[in-house]
Design a protein around this nucleic acid. Structure first.
Length: 681
RNA sequence: UGCGGGGUGGAGCAGUUGGUAGCUCGUUGGGCUCAUAACCCAAAGGUCACUGGUUCGAGUCCAGUCCCCGCAACCA
């Protein structure tokens, strides 16, 4: 009986659509791995689960900002993303969601199990509460004066001026970053996971691949960045981590007296893999079937994720699974690095992204082209980059010229010489063995999570085919030795059939089209005498310059257009009184000196001549202007802003700037040279 | 500055336990014409970021320096 394989793909967060970075990072490698395994050990022994992650403060905040309900937001993106995955052909057995009742129940059961075992520490503390927004505030959402250095810009978790770690209660004059209201200190309590208690076995698990002293997995197949990041966490000491939040959007903590508390989203989300499996089992009308995937020792668990998720999947979730007991721990967590786009990182807020659903619209019937390119450049060991020119080059020079062309020549020749009836001959074992060797090399690479290498081995089969034809030149021999040509074409057809198998996990549609042309099934045992093949159809079409130009333009205009989510919605602020306006002391100043502030990328320290005095002002413009650029410039200065220490330097005012949608900055300057200190009214 | 990852021919990347530096694309020359001006062959092109060290021998190990990316911080 075959081993079973349970594959999970990171649950996409349901607050936005999917882009190519998500696909290249987790879903495409997971899909390739799944397809490979299904062909190897049978469909019934492989399960691939995923779903929307729909909880957490970020969705809650987005809902408040957009004046919608959290449910409306997650419904919207769950639907969009589910459809995009389907259209792209990611082979999930189920795409579930964490807002479902089944998930809530599952997560609560999990929590209770650990709670009863005393795994959590209940810690009482006082936490800031925003009476206007009516919610507890995360530490980062509280601003106040640092008790240590008196900086007024300290956050609830840390003061950036002196670097001291703080708790919100220590802040002097704290206020909410949400509403600006004075937060109240209310008593609350939370359950914490003392991760430090587990660091011993976690370290052994990550470093040596051992669990409870016994062999668990091969560490050499784990990626550097995964092992490195986990060990660095362990070495710097695992702390206590709160597993509950004071939040009304999430899985309620199922304990009496815990009303208004929800499970921490990172506790709840990975359990989503389990509840997804349960839902799948229910859909199969075999509700207990999920257990064999999660609990049988002959089932392998693999998590596909991006690098931002590493510690949650390699440290926190394993602790939870092990403490619960009876669950398998991951055999591998092949986390990818990040994919950049046209020289810049992908950014949802700046709309610098290639959205999956838009690609599918703009390039209909070209899923495999994107799968090919994203696999070729997958950020397996370091960040990599997608450019549209590269996409075009890879499709035209590799997919079209090497793969598509080879298949086309074979099918065209067979039709031409034999009227579509495959010539029958003895199997050339040298050729066949070579094909099988390439296929197994390709598959070994997949098994070791080296998808780029595996794809390249599959492509080598097409290269081998082209060379085979060029070396033997059947089109020349046909006139003098047609018998020999029959042998050659029989082999060429066999190579093509093997090629379909080799590319199947990577490009399932192209593989199917090859099989259709050859008239064969996925399980192929050689051509029989009298086998009929179909007519030649092009596997891939060239990508034209204008398509690429269009995409590049689209990216450029997306960056500056108001369609970006950040800039689209910038309503005017409420009216104020003339008195309030008069409180502002705005004047013209002239920049005399400028220098970069040490240890801060973005800060310039300026001295500004205000006529009667010279002021020191620290401004966050270092990435846009060098000191030489700004010396001598006349600018608008807000003079009576409360002085503030930034990086230890007191800033005595604020330079007024304007910023466009691309993030470019300009000074607000007088239209001609003017007297320093002149008032602006 | 803290943590992690990385710096290899024009571009994108491999280089396992140290032993003549590889792959894909591009470039140049040639061949072929069955094929989506596709395919095949050949060539040019690298002091493996830098500096020291260990070694008979280092891209590969050790130390230091510089640079890039992500996270963190900063952006009054």
């Amino acid at each position: 009986m075959s081993k079973r394989h349970l594959i999970t793909s990171a649950l996409p967060y349901a607050n936005g659509p999917l882009h190519i970075g998500h696909i290249a990072g987790a879903y495409l490698p997971a899909d390739i791995y799944t397809r490979y395994l299904r062909s190897k050990v049978g469909r019934e022994n492989v399960l691939h689960v995923c779903g929307s992650d729909e909880h957490g403060a970020a969705i809650s905040m987005k809902a408040i900002k957009e004046n919608r309900t959290p449910k409306a937001i997650v419904d919207q993106f769950h639907t969009i993303n589910k459809k995009a995955f389907q259209d792209f052909g990611i082979d999930f057995d189920i795409y579930h969601r964490t807002s479902s009742e089944l998930h809530h129940k599952t997560a609560q059961e999990f929590f209770l199990n650990l709670y009863d075992k005393g795994v959590f520490k209940k810690v009482e503390n006082e936490q800031m509460y925003d009476p206007e927004a009516k919610q507890f505030l995360a530490d980062r959402f509280i601003v106040g004066t640092c008790p240590n250095c008196k900086s007024e810009r300290a956050y609830g978790d840390q003061c950036e001026s002196c670097g001291k770690t703080l708790s919100p209660a220590e802040l002097i004059n704290p206020h909410s970053a949400l509403s600006g209201a004075q937060p109240e200190l209310l008593k609350t309590w939370h359950f914490y996971l003392p991760m430090g208690d587990h660091s011993g076995w976690i370290e052994e698990f990550i470093r040596d691949g051992k669990l409870d002293g016994a062999f668990h997995h091969e560490t050499k197949n784990w990626r550097n960045q995964v092992v490195g990041q986990c060990l660095s966490w362990v070495e710097s000491g695992l702390g206590d981590r709160a597993m509950t939040r004071d939040l009304d959007w999430g899985v309620p903590v199922p304990i009496e007296g815990a009303e208004g508390k929800a499970l921490y989203v990172w506790l709840d989300a990975p359990i989503g893999y389990i509840s997804a499996t349960k839902q799948w089992a229910i859909d199969q009308e075999n509700p207990e079937a999920w257990k064999k995937w999660w609990q049988d020792s002959d089932s392998d668990l693999v998590h596909f994720i991006g690098k931002d998720n590493i510690v949650f999947h390699c440290i926190i979730f394993p602790i939870i699974l092990k403490e619960h007991g009876g669950y398998n721990l991951p055999m591998n967590v092949p986390a990818n690095e990040f994919l950049n786009l046209e020289g810049d990182k992908i950014s949802t807020s700046r709309n610098h992204a290639v959205w999956l659903h838009e690609y599918l619209e703009d390039f209909p019937n070209r899923k495999d082209e994107l799968r090919y390119v994203l696999t070729s450049i997958a950020p397996e060991s370091k960040d990599s980059e997608f450019t549209w020119r590269d996409y075009q080059a890879r499709v035209n020079n590799e997919l079209v010229a090497i793969l598509g062309n080879f298949v086309n020549r074979v099918v065209v020749l067979t039709n031409k010489y034999y009227n579509g009836l495959a010539p029958f001959s003895d199997t050339d074992w040298e050729i066949t063995d070579h094909c099988l060797a390439l296929i197994s090399k390709s598959q070994e690479n997949i098994a070791q999570y080296k998808f780029r290498d595996g794809l390249s081995e599959a492509m080598n089969l097409a290269r081998f085919g082209n060379k085979f034809l060029a070396d033997l030149e059947p089109w020349k021999l046909q006139k003098t030795n047609p018998d020999e040509v029959r042998k050659i074409m029989f082999s060429a057809l066999n190579i093509t059939a093997h090629l379909a198998k080799a590319i199947d996990p990577y490009m399932p549609e192209a593989a199917n089209r090859i099989r259709e042309m050859l008239g064969i099934d996925p399980i192929f045992n050689g051509f029989l005498d009298g086998h009929e093949i179909g007519t030649a159809k092009l596997l891939f079409a060239k990508v034209e310059d204008e398509d690429i130009d269009h995409q590049i333009q689209k990216l450029a205009s997306a960056k500056s257009s108001t369609s970006s989510p950040e800039s689209a919605d910038r309503p005017f602020k409420p009216n104020m009184t003339f008195d309030e306006f008069q409180k502002m002391d705005l004047r013209i100043g002239t920049i005399k000196t400028a220098e970069k502030v040490k240890k801060a990328d973005k800060l310039l320290q300026l001295s500004v001549d205000m006529g009667t005095e010279v002021r020191t002002i620290v401004s966050g413009i270092a990435q846009h202007f060098s000191p030489e650029d700004v010396i001598g410039k006349q600018v608008s200065v807000l003079c009576n802003l409360e002085p503030r220490k930034i990086r230890g330097i007191e800033s005595q005012g604020m330079i007024l700037m304007s910023e466009d949608n691309e993030g470019n900055l300009v000074f607000i300057s007088p239209e001609k040279a003017f007297q320093s200190g002149a008032e602006i009214r």
